[in-house]
């Protein structure tokens, strides 16, 4: 079972990765990330994010091509 704290950490990690794909991050959020997030989790989330990024574009391409 996930505790509340871990779940927040999970969401926070995902948010940090998503913002990084846009290349922007608020200084305050970044400080919180720096204090709270586990770098290993961020790296894993980043790689998973990269894979999801690929599948998302693939899905979009399929929609575009099917029309």
């Amino acid at each position: 079972m996930m505790t509340n704290k871990q779940r927040n950490g999970f969401i926070a990690t995902v948010l940090a990765v998503l913002w990084s794909f846009a290349g922007i991050r608020k200084g305050r959020d970044y400080q919180l990330d720096a204090e709270q997030l586990n770098p290993k989790h961020v790296i894993i989330a980043g790689i998973i994010g990269g894979i999801l990024f690929v599948f998302t574009i693939l899905a979009v391409v399929n929609i575009v091509v099917s029309q």
Binding site: W19, S20, I24, R25, G27
Partner: peptide, 8 residues
């Protein structure tokens, strides 16, 4: 935007 630079 030091933070955004690192993220980007």
């Amino acid at each position: 935007g030091y933070a955004s630079m690192v993220y980007a």
